[in-house]
C-alpha cells in the first residue's frame, strides 16, 4: 500500500476513469435490480400448487395460461389504454402550466414552482384519501352537480375516480419533465416566428410544439410508466371495479399467493415498459 502510494501516479485514461466511476452504480444495479428481476423471471416458470405452495419446476403454464385467458388479455389492454389516456390528459392539463412556468421569472416563478412540486411532498395515499372525500357520492362535487339539477355521475370507486386521482397525482411529474424538456424553447425564436408572419396559433403549432416535443416525450414516458405501475391509487379509488396490471399483481402476490402468476404479470409489465421506452427513443430519434 505504502510503496504504491510513493510510486508516481500512473495517468488514467478517461475510459478507465469512466469505468471506475460507473462501477459502484453498476454493482448496486446488478444486486438491487437485475438479480431480483432475473429471479422474478425464473419465478414465472414455477408452478403453484393449490393453496399457494410453490413447486420449483420449469413450466410454461403461467405464460400460456395468461395468453389464453381473456380476463388477462383485457387486463393488459385496459392497463395500457387507461394509462395512455391518463398520460394524455395529464399532458393536456400540465402543458399550459409548464409553459407559463417556463416563461415566468423571478420570485413569482420560484413560488409557482414550489406550488407545483408541493403535492410531491405529501404522500399519494393522503392525496388519494383527499380525493375520496371530495368525489364520493355525498361529497361536495357530486352535491354541487346535483344542486344544479344535473344528473350526477358516480365519481368515486370506479374508473372515473382512478382517472381523476391518477391524473392529479401524476401532474407534478409531467410538469417537471416538460419544464426540463423546454430548454430549447428560446423566447426569441417564438418572436422570430411572430415577426415572420405566424399567428400565435401557427407559432404554437410550427415552432413551440416541435421544440417542446422532447419534453413531451419525456413527460409522457414518465407518466405512462408511473400510471401502469401505480397501485395505491387504483386500489383505493377503484372500488374493486377497476382491474389493472399493478392491482392484479398485488392480489395474486398478497391475497391469492400465486407468486408465479404475479411474477409472470410483473415481467409482462416490464415488457410493456420496454415497449414504452422503445417508442420514446423512436420519437427522439425522429426528432433529431
Amino acid at each position: 500500500m505504502t510503496t504504491e502510494a510513493l510510486a508516481p501516479p500512473r495517468k488514467m485514461r478517461s475510459g478507465e476513469v469512466a469505468v471506475l466511476l460507473l462501477l459502484p452504480i453498476a454493482l448496486i444495479n446488478a444486486i438491487g435490480f437485475i438479480l431480483p428481476v432475473l429471479n422474478l423471471a425464473r419465478f414465472s416458470f414455477n408452478k403453484v400448487s393449490i393453496g399457494g405452495g410453490i413447486e420449483n419446476v420449469f413450466t410454461w403454464e403461467n405464460w400460456l395460461g395468461l395468453l389464453a385467458d381473456r380476463f388477462y388479455l383485457e387486463l393488459i389492454f385496459n392497463s395500457v389504454w387507461i394509462s395512455l389516456a391518463i398520460t394524455l390528459t395529464t399532458l393536456i392539463l400540465s402543458y399550459p402550466i409548464a409553459l407559463y412556468l417556463h416563461r415566468s421569472s423571478g420570485p413569482w416563478r420560484t413560488f409557482l414552482t414550489v406550488l407545483v412540486i408541493s403535492p410531491l411532498l405529501t404522500s399519494a395515499v393522503v392525496r388519494t384519501y383527499g380525493w375520496i372525500a371530495i368525489l364520493i357520492d355525498d361529497g361536495p362535487v357530486v352535491s354541487a352537480i346535483r344542486a344544479l339539477g344535473l344528473p350526477a355521475p358516480s365519481l368515486m370507486f370506479n374508473i372515473k375516480g382512478v382517472f381523476i386521482g391518477l391524473t392529479e397525482i401524476l401532474m407534478p411529474y409531467m410538469i417537471l419533465a416538460l419544464m426540463a424538456g423546454f430548454g430549447r424553447l428560446d423566447p426569441r425564436v417564438e418572436e422570430a416566428a411572430r415577426t415572420l408572419g405566424a399567428t400565435p396559433a401557427r407559432t404554437f403549432r410550427k415552432v413551440i410544439l416541435p421544440l417542446t416535443l422532447p419534453g413531451i416525450a419525456l413527460g409522457c414516458l414518465l407518466c405512462f410508466v408511473l400510471a401502469v405501475s401505480s397501485f395505491i391509487t387504483p386500489k383505493l379509488m377503484g372500488g374493486g371495479r377497476v382491474f389493472l396490471l399493478a392491482t392484479e399483481i398485488y392480489d395474486q402476490a398478497i391475497v391469492t399467493l400465486n407468486w408465479p402468476l404475479a411474477s409472470t404479470l410483473s415481467i409482462l409489465v416490464l415488457i410493456v415498459f420496454g415497449a414504452a421506452l422503445w417508442a420514446y427513443s423512436a420519437v427522439l430519434r425522429r426528432l433529431d
Binding site: S49, G51, G52, G53, I54, L257
Partner: peptide
C-alpha cells in the same frame, strides 16, 4: 390456515 397449508407444503 390456507397460507399455513402452503407453508406446510413447502
Amino acid at each position: 390456515v390456507s397460507v399455513a397449508k402452503a407453508a406446510t407444503d413447502e
